[in-house]
Design a binder for these strands. Structure first.
Length: 376
RNA sequence: CCGUGAUUGAGC
């Protein structure tokens, strides 16, 4: 049973879905077919692997779901934006505990339904540090820093994560002074708080302060390395970026993606491509980044080749490819791609708008402008 | 034996 549990837990992302299905089948064929503990883990697994439908099927097959089952199912629904289904389950649960309440509040908050989240928070019977941290995080995330800070202040007990959340909130909103003074007063300074502060300095173009903090840090984790790397990439300082990249002990996909970008900026397309090929887990972002690197250097054929090779397209990858055609002035291809994108956002529409404008197609430009879901 | 919270990468 613990062997199965381990197997199930090893599937944590959509790329594991095939294996997940196989493991599920194996459990079905075993003596643990009706085991609730394993079923709960399967619900969680399918949620993480991106198949809510399968998660729900497993959940519905549990004769006597316990609160773990339900809380996991709520999480699966909300991870996929199915807040109504999540709430339905939540309302039907006989025994809810703090974890359940926190999970439901977070589901609302993530979707930007902050008043619903706050209402749930207010009704939570035994609020804990996580309930409060969720408020701090999402108020900040949606730019409501006053309320974020007030929640932080009203917290009866703060822990390291709560404090780090607040430091990051300040840093991300250009309030790096406030971030710093909060940070200085912290009894326990987590690496996350250090990293957030450095990112605040980088964002504020305070490079000396950022460097000073990086040097004073007790240790670096992969995020620290990537933060340093990305700051040089943003400054188009290829040599320092490469130096950092080479010194990273264990590079992840984000590090490689940043370095692909750096190589693209400097026209080193072969190096960009080599780093891309060496990535173990190529994701949509790394694919899109190579495409942009090729496009920015006028290599439309290579960009197109990569685009066609991608295992999966999303809005960002398609918009990147549209941008590649736009650069070459191939407006008919831009138009064709635009038409094929179902979930266009502002950036995508702006790009189309700009192409029509460049192309002198004023009427089409006006039409796009008027039909855009949002303007900026 | 199972459930909730923090920091890093791409497109106009």
């Amino acid at each position: 049973k613990h062997g199965y549990a381990q197997l199930v837990r090893s599937c944590g992302s959509p790329r594991d879905l095939q294996r997940a299905i196989a493991i599920h089948a194996q459990i079905q064929a075993s003596q643990f077919r009706h085991d609730r503990f394993l079923a709960n883990l399967l619900v969680e697994m399918y949620g993480k692997c991106g198949s809510v439908a399968d998660a729900r099927r497993v959940f519905d097959s549990i004769p006597d779901p316990n609160k773990f089952s339900s809380t996991l199912m709520i999480a699966a629904h909300s991870q996929h934006g199915q807040i109504v289904q999540a709430r339905e389950l939540f309302d039907r649960m006989p025994e809810k505990d703090t974890v359940t309440w926190n999970g439901m509040a977070r589901a609302y908050a993530q979707q930007g339904h902050l008043s619903e989240a706050k209402e749930l928070f207010d009704r939570t019977p035994r609020r804990d540090v996580i309930s409060w941290t969720t408020l701090v995080l999402y108020f900040a995330h949606y730019g409501r820093l006053e309320e974020s800070w007030r929640s932080f202040h009203r917290m009866p007990k703060r822990d390291t994560m709560a404090s780090a959340t607040m430091v990051a909130a300040f840093a991300q909103h250009g309030l790096v002074e406030d971030a710093k003074s909060l940070f200085d007063g912290l009894p326990e300074k987590s690496l996350v708080a250090w990293n957030s502060l450095v990112q605040g300095y980088v964002q504020g173009d305070l490079d000396e302060e950022a460097t000073a903090m990086l040097e004073r840090m007790p240790e670096w984790d992969i995020v620290s390395w990537n933060t340093a790397l990305q700051s040089y990439v943003d400054l188009c300082d290829f040599d320092r970026a490469r130096d950092i990249f080479r010194r990273i002990p264990e590079r992840d996909t984000m590090a490689s993606t940043a370095m692909i970008q750096a190589n693209g900026q400097s026209g080193h397309l072969d190096d960009a491509r080599r780093i891309f090929e060496e990535i173990n887990f190529k994701d949509l972002v790394s694919w899109a980044t190579v495409i942009v690197a090729y496009a920015n250097n006028g290599k439309i054929l290579e960009a197109d080749e990569m685009f066609k090779k991608m295992p999966l397209w999303n809005l960002w990858s398609s918009t990147s490819m549209m941008g590649a055609y736009a650069q070459r002035g191939n407006y008919s291809e831009v138009e064709r791609m635009f038409a094929s994108i179902p979930d266009r956002d502002v950036i995508c529409c702006n790009l189309m708008l700009e192409c029509y404008a460049q192309d002198g197609k004023l009427k089409d430009a006006v039409k796009i402008f008027e039909r855009m879901p949002k303007h900026n």
